[in-house]
Design a protein around this nucleic acid. Structure first.
Length: 879
RNA sequence: GGGCGAAUAGCUCAGUUGGUUCAGAGCACUUGGUUUACACCCAAGGGGUCGGGGGUUCGAAUCCCUCUUCGCCCA
């Protein structure tokens, strides 16, 4: 068959993806083989592919394809996440564009719009993953709001409630005034903001004294319920037991004492606003203070805001500062930098707010998950291990999880209210069951479903995704079904460290709670993808390359290799398109090597030449050694080292040395034995490379010979890995390459063209093997290698104590230069010898160092001595 | 403010129990090379006080102390 000398990625990639799909290689069914399972971290249903996904999913695909080649039953479950806040925000924005206000819609109408949106844009990202080559089992695609998935979520909620782990609490929560919802602590991003520190004077009741406090939020004085001083602080002793008057609203508030107050900060005197600050809330509870909430749900002021009622908090901050100044309460204003919590989704400044929420008690649930990861047997292993510390810190300080969200998009909380009392509700999977429970609880047999009002809030998205590894196999609803028993626990999880707590830790918690086992064995935490300036890639910066364009330009194979080349687990990846170029370069290299073999004419007539036989023997050993190395890297999840090893194997060893060694002269045929062996070796290389570059390897595999569907590369058998017992051939080969390098250097220095045949003379002090002579002769165009006892006139170089000579015409020999070169080498070697001997003459070294180390130093000494002999002899003959 | 981690070549990073991987890889750079598979190529080469200082040791990139700078998480 005629092979094109150039490789065209885009045509070939879609061809093979279709072929794999058609033959159903990605699909997995329960069978007798060992399973290998990965569940995808479900991307947001409305998301588009970005660099982080590309990295993530390439890693997963490498692991899955490798498992497939190793003969395991590989199952990669794809899917998407309903991402309640993000998706609802997008739908609200889209409706707004159409002139529709969410508040004018019923819940049902809104959800119809949302599902319409989801059906239209949902899953685009999964289509994009196909372009990358992701070999997911698409028949298993799940969505966190599929009916069965939602059922599982509700079932778990009810179960946890019945176990007494879910409770309703009036708590300080993070309130997003723009989305009008609570956020979990993890969804709040703290940003450093430049603000002001306002120093305000409060009058003291019944005296002319005043007290000055410092605050960053003057608008909250209207919610003040105390002034707090440190009991140790002598500056304020005189205020103990007195009362202060809040400016503007003229309310009297007590002056309390608590050691919580930092005497160094501000004036050492604190105003307490329990409704609007978490620490103040704690103080308030302790000292039994009044709670005065001055905000509406959009963070504008309510009636406690006096004449500021209805105005936004930031407007009020400016205006009230002005009023306070005019009325003489404002002493001074200082510049002050503080950390402000903002919403991850809407970017709005979050407001601590007291509200009714649902919470999950975490402390006891977390215990098995702490033991699982940090216990001695490391039931769940994190890669890289440095994240164990972060995990420990979080898990040991875990707080109850606020699982309710004031949204419509998501699983509605299955709590049903039948009255106005705080405890007038029941929790059940369906309204019918709820009615029964409510009848029981109230002893009112006349209750109707219409008397029940379901809690309007939905559950936090993570409350559905924490079940993901179980629920995709229906393990919650049917805990003993065949699939969950076969595929669960899954093997590897690949995700970013930014969701170690949001998601990974919670899956581990739910796994131990509901299956009494880990959800996965290994967690590979990838780094974040950053640009060359180390900035996080983001839409707003516009520094994220278009993923699909990259694939178009470099091919999916090239992009995959490019991404993995520089991404050690847990390290951020500084993305540079040049890496994709390197990936594409490897593809070209492989293709071009294949093209070379395709144009050879094969002859059964000729014998296998010596140089081919040796080169093939060497490569086979080298391959075994590299396979073992690769195995080791895989076991440590060091994929960038795996691809680097493969890169060097193919680029340097296979193309650079083996093919050069066996390549017949121009337009000469190659012997059949060598050809067959080279092709077999090529096939092994393709198998090793396949997980990283699935497309080009399958293409070449199928071009090498006609294959049936059962013989496709994607399901081929990975090369056997045998222990290398004798690696002397590799050492001998390395010695030969040093000789080849030496000759190349001489050719370059002396301007001897490659096509000019030269002779080589050797003084073989090392008594090194001659078996590589044929290869040396071929690779550096030498007519004859002559073994001699004495130095020969010409250019020279040394490998260990061996000396090599290339005779050249007398006028191009510069004796002085030769002497200088040899003298330098001699000086260096003598210096080296001296340091070695110094070590060896140190009694404490010889007595304390391990035998192996001492023996090695002795060998270094002997080698150096031999080399010095050679160099001195050379010098003597030149002078 | 609390916790965790990092600093090695121009860049990105390896370097496991202190000595056989001990100063390394890839990229970038410099120089030379194309009738012979690949210029998306090949070859040769330069380049680092292992962040600073101190200590332990026969021996330190590696262990300890300290300082500096940076990153991440949490409050």
């Amino acid at each position: 068959m005629k092979i094109s000398p150039k490789y065209n990625a885009s045509e070939i990639e879609s061809k093979w993806y279709d072929y794999w799909m058609k033959n159903n290689y990605f699909h997995s069914e329960v069978d007798e083989r060992e399973p290998y399972t990965i569940v995808i971290p479900p991307p947001n249903v409305t998301g588009v592919l970005h660099m982080g996904h590309m990295l993530n999913n390439t890693i997963q695909d490498v692991l899955i394809r490798r498992a497939r080649l190793l003969g395991k039953n590989a199952c990669w479950v794809p899917g998407t996440d309903h991402a309640s806040i993000a998706t609802e925000a997008k739908v609200v924005a889209k409706l707004k564009e159409e002139g529709i206000n969410k508040n004018d819609l019923t819940r049902e109408e809104f959800l119809n719009h949302a599902f319409e949106w989801k059906d239209k844009y949902g899953g685009i990202i999964l289509e994009q993953l196909k372009k990358l080559g992701a070999s997911c089992d698409w028949e298993r695609t799940k969505f966190t709001m599929d009916d069965d998935m939602s059922e599982a979520v509700i079932k778990v909620f009810v179960d946890l409630y019945n176990k007494g782990l879910i409770y309703r609490g009036f708590r300080m929560v993070n309130w997003d005034p723009e989305a009008k919802t609570t956020l979990s602590d993890e969804e709040v991003i703290y940003e450093e903001r430049q603000g002001n520190l306002y120093y305000l004077e409060y009058d003291i009741v019944g005296s002319d004294e005043k007290v000055t406090i410092a605050t960053t939020r003057p608008e909250t004085i209207l919610g003040d319920s105390a002034i707090c001083i440190n009991p140790e602080d002598e500056r304020f002793t005189h205020l103990k037991g007195k009362k202060a008057i809040v400016p503007l609203c003229n309310r009297e508030i007590p002056i309390i004492e608590d050691s919580y107050v930092d005497v160094e900060f501000g004036t050492g005197c604190l105003k307490v606003t329990p409704a609007h600050d978490e620490n103040d809330k704690v103080l308030g509870d302790k000292h039994n203070l009044e709670v005065i909430d001055i905000f509406n749900e959009d963070a504008s002021l309510n009636s406690f805001g006096l004449h500021y009622e209805g105005k936004d908090r930031f407007v009020v901050r400016k205006e009230i500062a002005k009023e306070l100044e005019e009325k003489g309460y404002l002493v001074k204003v200082e510049q002050h930098t503080n950390k402000v919590g903002t919403s991850e989704r809407t970017k709005a400044v979050i407001e601590p707010r007291l509200s009714d929420q649902w919470f999950l008690k975490m402390e006891d649930l977390a215990k098995p998950a702490i033991e699982g990861v940090l216990g001695e047997d490391r039931d769940v292993k994190l890669y890289p291990r440095k994240f164990e510390n972060t995990y420990r810190h979080w898990m040991e300080n875990i707080r109850d999880w606020n699982i309710s969200r004031q949204l419509w998009w998501g699983q509605q909380i299955p709590a049903f209210y039948y009255g106005d009392g705080k405890e007038d509700f029941v929790v059940a999977e369906t309204k019918e069951k709820a009615l029964e429970l409510a009848k029981e609880k109230t002893s009112n047999a006349n209750l109707q479903t219409s008397d029940l009002r379901q809690d309007p809030d939905v559950l936090d998205t993570w409350f559905s995704s924490w079940l993901w590894p179980m629920s995709v196999f229906d393990g919650i609803r049917n805990p003993e079904n065949e699939e969950i028993n076969y595929y669960y626990p899954t093997n590897d999880l690949v995700t970013g460290p930014d969701i170690l707590f949001f998601w990974v830790a919670r899956m581990i918690i739910s796994g131990y709670e509901y299956k009494d086992t880990r959800p996965f064995e290994n967690v590979y935490l990838t780094g974040l993808v950053r640009d060359k300036q180390r900035r996080k890639m983001s839409k707003s910066l516009g520094n994220s390359p278009d993923a699909l364009k990259l694939i178009e330009e470099y091919g999916a194979d090239g992009v995959r290799v490019g991404l993995l080349l520089s991404s050690a687990a847990g390290n951020d990846l500084l993305f540079d398109e040049a890496l994709c170029q390197q990936g594409k370069g490897l593809g070209n290299k492989v293709w071009s090597a294949f093209y070379l073999t395709s144009i050879w004419e094969v002859s059964e007539e000729i014998e296998q030449p010596e140089h081919s036989k040796i080169a093939i023997d060497w490569y086979k050993t080298k391959l075994q050694k590299t396979l073992a190395e690769i195995e080791d890297h895989y076991s440590k999840y060091r994929l960038s080292d795996v691809i680097m090893s493969i890169y060097k194997l193919i680029n340097d060893d296979f193309c650079g040395w083996l093919l050069e060694a066996v390549k017949p002269a121009y337009q000469q045929p190659i012997d059949k034995k060598t050809y067959d062996e080279v092709i077999a070796i090529f096939e092994d290389n393709l198998k090793v490379l396949h997980p990283f570059m699935p497309f080009i390897t399958e293409e070449i595999w199928q071009l090498i010979s006609e294959r049936t569907a059962e013989e496709a590369l994607i399901i081929a058998k990975y090369p056997a890995i045998n222990e290398v017992k004798d690696s002397s051939i590799i050492e001998e080969f390395d010695f030969a390459t040093s000789i080849i390098s030496g000759i190349r250097t001489i050719r370059k220095e002396k301007n001897i063209a490659f096509k000019e045949v030269i002779e080589l003379y050797v003084v073989n002090n090392e008594n090194s093997t001659k078996s590589f002579d044929s290869i040396i002769k071929k690779l550096v165009n030498i007519s004859e290698i002559n073994y001699v006892q004495e130095k020969v006139d010409g250019a020279s170089f040394r490998v260990k104590s061996n000396e090599y000579f290339v005779p050249i015409s007398a006028d191009s020999i510069n004796v002085e230069e030769e002497i200088k070169k040899i003298t330098e080498e001699l000086n260096y070697t003598e210096g080296f010898l001296k340091s070695v001997q110094k070590k060896l003459s140190n009694e404490r070294f010889v007595n304390n160092a391990p035998e192996q180390v001492v023996a090695n130093e002795k060998k270094k000494e002997a080698d150096a001595l031999a080399k010095i002999e050679t160099l001195k002899a050379s010098l003597a003959s030149l002078e």
